[in-house]
Design a protein around this nucleic acid. Structure first.
Lengths: 231, 231
DNA sequence: ACTGGGGTGACAACTCGTTGACAGGTCGAG
DNA sequence: CTCGACCTGTCAACGAGTTGTCACCCCAGT
């Protein structure tokens, strides 16, 4: 899923250059040449980011920014401002924006800032409550933030894939999960490993969370179907 | 119970913007427009956090900070400093500020830092101020003011960047930090080094704080994810 | 120009995911 | 009950990708 970004800039050459550069970076780019069109498009499409020039015909950048915020739009807003002019206002009003870039700027700088903004935005987005940093079952405590699991006081590191798999198990306790389902959920839709890969990872997980890996208490094999996780 | 925060900032537009933004984030906000009023309010109300501009009428930020610390007030203090003045940063920490934010900044950045500060503060014994001029972990003692780290009696010098990185690690113990996040937090807003740069600095830090840099106890690599700091 | 710290690129060393092989194990048909 | 087909446990080895490490370049402060 591409990140959608709306570019609101009235100078044609710059806008086109920006759009090209951003498309080349893999963004899904929308564009507008004045404030009104930009605001309308932002409200209609709700892109992840709005890249907003300050000096615009019909409706200036601040006004657009304010309107976006008043609509509680989730978009991050990055201000494009010329050096010197408006600087004070940027300082004063910048609170509503997520970042700002001073012209002239390099594509590299812009892209890096955009990525940083996206990182921050999704870092706090997990909306309703924190996604539970720790979970416990049996004698184990998993720390998702630390990538560790603690069994009876002995701490083990988990690899990313192991943690992802364990997370899926924890989210579906007591039900049998076919290997294909596990691949879908713990790997990506872009990854297509063999179902045997699942076995290997189950093996590794068992060694870390089971007190007796030979007779698993938590990750139980259901012959011919898949695995079932029990607390 | 809302977290109470005192904003001490003389520029009206910025102060109002800050207060609005913080109220929207659910803080209970007090405000003051100069150093004396700010100090008085801080001492009277004892808010969890004081957000302190450095350049203030009547009494500058350093002076307020020093007075707050001398009164053993438990408030965490976050410095707002004008851009580019590294000296401020150094001084701020020397006097025991809990964090600093460089103007201009985005609301998200500010709120993230405030939450990090709160996390740290509540993890420690309440009542004691958190001057954190020095920090210790394992066999090490870091002196932020002197830019040194002492491991089992052998003292090493730290460069500014090394210290900043170590500070971030210390502020987020036990959780894996992706390289990008480390860059966001330990490098400035205008710096865009490669993620590999982080590795280099981790290497240098390990040589100074680990008793066996080959088998790190404090800065642990989590393959494919980032680094985790353990005390 | 000199110096020290920070950033980058190159290459070595390593990690982990994946796979294939093989040894059990399980279950149903006969 | 026995056998065979199929499934699972286990491991070693491979390879892509990641990290450790270092030397070099660049820039700012002196």
């Amino acid at each position: 899923m591409k990140t959608r970004i709306l570019v609101v800039e009235d100078e044609d050459p710059l806008r086109l250059a920006l759009c090209d550069a951003l498309r080349a970076e893999g963004f899904d780019v929308l564009e507008a040449a004045d404030g009104e069109a930009g605001l309308a498009l932002a409200l209609k499409e709700g892109p992840e980011i709005v890249l907003l020039d300050l000096m615009l015909p019909k409706r200036d950048g601040f006004s657009v920014l304010r309107a976006i915020r008043e609509d509680r739009l989730a978009s991050a807003v990055v201000i494009l401002s010329a050096r010197g002019e408006e600087w004070d206002r940027v300082q004063g009003f910048e609170y509503g924006a997520d970042d700002y870039v001073v012209k002239p700027f390099s594509t590299r700088e812009l892209v890096l800032r955009l990525r940083a903004v996206l990182r921050r935005a999704e870092g706090e987005a997990p909306g309703v409550g924190t996604p539970e940093r720790k979970a416990r079952f049996g004698a184990c405590e998993v720390d998702f933030a630390a990538y560790t699991v603690d069994r009876d006081g002995s701490k083990q590191g988990l690899s990313r894939q192991e943690l992802d798999l364990l997370r899926v198990f924890l989210g579906n306790p007591g039900r049998v999960m076919p290997r294909e389902t596990l691949l879908d959920l713990a790997w990506g839709r872009d990854e297509f490993p063999t179902t045997r890969t699942v076995d290997t990872h189950v093996l590794k997980l068992r060694k870390k969370i089971e007190s007796d890996p030979e007779a698993p208490q938590h990750i139980v094999t259901v012959h011919g179907v898949g695995y079932r996780f029990e607390r």
